[in-house]
Structure formats: C-alpha cells, structure tokens
Write a protein that binds this DNA or RNA. Structure first.
Lengths: 218, 218
DNA sequence: GTCAACGATTTTGTATACAATACAGATCGT
DNA sequence: ACGATCTGTATTGTATACAAAATCGTTGAC
C-alpha cells in the first residue's frame, strides 16, 4: 500500500499529475499526501519543492501547493520552446549520430509503426517517447538531452490527450519517417525543420482542443 | 548579521557560487551553512534541493551536497544550448518587440557602452545582464524568458571570469550593437545568428581558458 | 609494514514538535 | 440587516530530535 521506500517520491507525484490523477489547479495538501505515501511531511515537501522548481506545481507562500495550471497561451509558449529544442536535437543528431544511435532510432520507429497499425494509443505513446528520447541521445549533447527530457516530461500530460485525436497517430508516424530519413542521410536542416514542425503541430492541435472546452486566463 | 528573513536563501547561495565564494566541487555542509545564515538545517536543505534541481549543486545520496563542477566538455554543451536559446529569443524579439522593449534594450546597451568606456568590468557585467534580459523579455514568450534566465544563471560563474579577458569587453559591446540593430530593423534571422555567435564565442573562449589551467575529465 | 575489518564520529535523511500565517465563521457595532 | 473585526482553526514554514548511513581512525592479523 505504502509507496516503496527505495523509490523516488517525486516521480510518483509527477506520474500522478501526468496521468491526470491529480488535476490541474488541484490543491496538494501535505498532510494528506504524507499519509497517502506513508511518510512524514518532510519528504513530501521536498518532492513538492522539486516539482515547483521544474514548474509542474506552484507553491504560493503560506498558501500551499497546487498542480500548476498552464493556460492555453502559456502552453503555446512551452510548445514553441519545445519545438526549438527538439529541432536542435534533430540538427545535432543528423550531424553526430553514430551507428548505435541510428539503430535505436530505427527500432523505436519500428515500435511506433507496430503500435500505430494496431491502433494501440498507449503503445504508440511509449514508443513515441522512446523515439524522441533516442533523438535526444543522438544529439551527443548530454546537457541538451537532459533539458529535452525535462521539457518532454512537463508537456507529458498535454501530449497524451492530444494523441487520442483520430488520425493524429498515423500523421505522427509519417512525420517520424521523414525525420528518421533526414537524420539517416545527415541532413541537419531538414531534420531540424521537420522536428520543429512535428512539435509545433502538436501545440496547435492542443490549442484548438483547449480553446473549445475551457477558459481560464493566466 | 543573520540573513534577512524576508529574502530568499536560495539567492544568497546562488550568489555565493556565482561570485566564486564557494568554489566548484566544494562541500556544502548543512550545519555550517545553517549556522552561517542563522537558520536551522531545514531551510538550508530546501535551498540546496532547489539548487540541485536547477543543476547548480549536486547532491549525492547520504554523501552531501557539493557545488556542481562542470567539466569543460559539459560546459561546452551548456553553451551550445544557451546559444540556441538566446538565438531563439533574438529571432522572436526581432519579430515581436514593441516600443517599450526596444527602449529598454537601447537603454541597457547604452549602459554597456558607458561601462565599457570606463573599463568597468563589474558595471559591464550587470549592464550586459540587463541587455540580455531585455532580449528575453522582448521575445514575448514568458516561458522562454524564464528558461533563458535560468540558463543565464547557471552559466553566470563561468561568464564572469571570461569577461576579464582583455579586449573581450569591447568585442562584446560591438556584437551587442549588431544584435540591437538587427532586432530594431526586425531582421529575425540576423538577430538569431548574431546572438548565437555571441554566446558560442563565450563558450569557446572559456574552453580555451579552462584547457590552459585545469584538468578534470567528466 | 600493509591491508582489512570493526567501531566511533560525523553527517545526511526523516519524523515530530512548535511557531507563524492565512482562512473562516461568529460576534459586535452601526 | 449588512459589514468589519476578532477569534478559532487549519495549514504552512521552521526548528529540533531521532535514525540511518557513510566516513575516518584504530586495531588487529597476516
């Protein structure tokens, strides 16, 4: 029942947020969380602090922590930045990827294709994650890879919803093909451009999605 | 004597690191810091945790916190990313900056010029900070501005040393002129390119500097 | 003399106790 | 009856106490 000791508390909370178990704007009561995870408030506070630093939750002094709610405009800003970062990863990957990088990329894309053909949304989600992570790695810039991974995490909750849109899954797959080809032939600018577009489209799609159902200004 | 209550502890530590008061690799003893700031270990731990999340210090489980020492290769990676981010800021600033943005930019550059002519390294350092921050703001992407500011902080310690190199100060000023002009005339690609180069040069200069005096592999 | 294992000490990690601040409801005044 | 202030309660922020782990020194064996 209790969260296993050896594991990191932050990840658990992060996951709960990504999974939508903790909705945006929801209050994160320290005592409640402490009880739920079977620990004292101290490690909870530490986890919340880390999540606040990475921007996933917001801590208002003396007023508690809430799951950060990013308005549509801020979300667009985040996707804009993510697109640039991924584009950079792609550009560097095209220039620097070695054999093992390309193998990993191709394998991930193969998984994506399999999931897409089976209409397995969850499967595609994870394969897609591996594909993008493989690109981060292939950039041969460890720091960049870390940053990209971090951003990926932050956008996780929003990306996920967006995949369920009908047709998006196969479009995404086709885009991956183009990106993979560009990296394989070492075409840095094409890889960068295609990846940027790949991300920006997601942002725009999500923007549409959000604009339809919710309204909250930053 | 004691650190003022109303102010944030994290900033104080951050500053000490940036100023070189706490050298890279140095151990950060919680008890000592607590005594020094006149608080208990708890807020110290919170501050260290935040700094660890942003990458300024490294916390090894049960082995304490040390000022993160970034080897030359990692530093280059960081500058590579910073260059891209600043380039993005410049590109967007050229497209989106309004009157007040341009005014702030021009004012900051004026301060830079004054400091450069007076050979005031510290003064230039701060004016330079304002200049770059003004560009971040002008990008009209709040999230991007935050990320850029964060990266700027992380590179602070290294940037600072590097400014003392003779001649670099005036070269930097000249580069600012070009960047400012590009933004003012709305030339997005030029602004991006110039800013990227402006940052990359700093990274390379620092690489030279480090290679001469220190040796530690990642 | 060197190396390994054990124990004492120091230091981190967690829990609890306490203080301060913010929120809510009730009371009092107008 | 409405509004403002005050008091009670709940929750965050900080300090201290305790537990677990790592480091360092010592001792003993080879």
């Amino acid at each position: 029942m209790s969260g296993k000791r050896g594991f990191v508390l932050r990840d658990a909370l992060e996951n709960d947020i990504a999974m939508g178990l903790l909705k945006a704007g929801e209050r994160l009561d320290e005592a409640t969380l402490a009880q739920r995870f079977g620990v004292s408030r101290t490690p909870i506070r530490e986890a919340l602090l880390q999540l606040a630093t990475t921007g996933l939750v917001e801590i208002r002094p003396h007023r508690g922590a809430v799951v950060a709610q990013v308005g549509p405009s801020r979300l667009m800003e985040m996707f804009e930045v993510m697109a640039e970062i991924e584009g950079m990863c792609g550009r560097l990957a095209a220039r620097r990827a070695d054999g093992s990088d390309l193998t990993a990329l191709a394998a991930a894309q193969q998984d994506c294709r399999a999931a897409a053909e089976a209409d397995d949304t969850d499967g595609y989600y994870y394969a897609n994650e591996r594909f993008h992570h493989a690109i981060y790695q292939a950039s041969r810039n460890g720091f960049l890879a870390e940053q990209a991974t971090l951003m990926h995490r932050r956008l996780k909750p929003y990306r996920r919803l967006q995949l369920r849109v009908r047709g998006r899954l196969h479009t995404s797959l086709a885009e991956h093909d183009g990106i993979l080809a560009a990296i394989e032939r070492g075409d840095a600018e094409a890889a960068s451009h295609l990846l940027k577009a790949h991300i920006i489209i997601q942002g725009e799609r999500f923007g549409d999605l959000v604009a339809n159902l919710a309204e909250h200004t930053a």
